[in-house]
Design a protein around this nucleic acid. Structure first.
Lengths: 126, 126
DNA sequence: CCGGATCCAGCGGGATACTG
DNA sequence: CAGTATCCCGCTGGATCCGG
């Protein structure tokens, strides 16, 4: 990454064309939110309840970021009281497919990681 | 994710079998370090110079984490002065293959993201 | 109902100095 | 050379109150 394929990092990270996606991968709330929106569209407070443990402020920030990067759309319905609907875009869906592929791989490799971790934490042991 | 496939998050994140890998994906220094180690093994100060901008402390922490999770090996050569060699494991290599696959996809989608971002930052514009 | 504004605590991470 | 130890600061994220 950082260039085309296996390039050594030469570009500042902000200019790296793929880092935006990697940052999303590592972001806890983004993935949780997108996972929900993959099934159906949600309203704000719906998400606030469904995404367990998230604060109102952080949910707002997360949604803004996702909208800005084109992962989701934000539709305001001019009703009283107001209703805002969040939905996945095609890019967001494509992204989640990547996440899923990765998750499948990670699931198969999970045992190796925990084994290594146990070995590291308890040196000299069966 | 969070379960098998598209499950809604029910498990605490610490117990999610795949989150460890996703966190790595999002970690700046881990990816940079692993990218270097993919080509060849490195010594500590070599990495400290090659991974531009990283501090000694954070490099140490990063390497410890990667070693603990079985991505890299740490070999101490009992010479004077001491020499420590870091190298990629099979798991680490496999992981980097995933990273690469993802990077290829991200490269193709980069234009969509920046386009969305421009649209968001400059509303009402060609 | 959907947020924006504010205040505050925790900690990740940088800089520096010191050892085996 | 390869770290560990210490200090310190900025930013993230939680809680709360307020407004459209």
């Amino acid at each position: 990454m950082w260039g085309t394929d296996l390039d050594v990092p030469t570009i500042p990270r902000e200019q790296c064309p793929v880092s935006d996606f990697f940052i999303r991968m590592g972001d806890k709330w983004s993935l949780l939110t997108l996972a929900l929106l993959r099934e159906r569209s949600y309203r704000f407070n719906e998400l606030n309840r469904a995404v367990d443990g998230i604060s109102q402020r952080v949910l707002t920030l997360t949604l803004r970021g996702l909208e800005r990067d084109g992962f989701i759309t934000r539709t305001v319905h001019p009703t009283v009281p107001p209703s805002v609907e969040y939905a996945l875009t095609e890019l967001g869906l494509d992204f989640m497919d990547q996440v899923n592929t990765l998750a499948m791989w990670a699931l198969g490799r999970h045992a190796d990681l925990t084994a290594a971790r146990t070995r590291y934490d308890h040196p000299g042991r069966p």
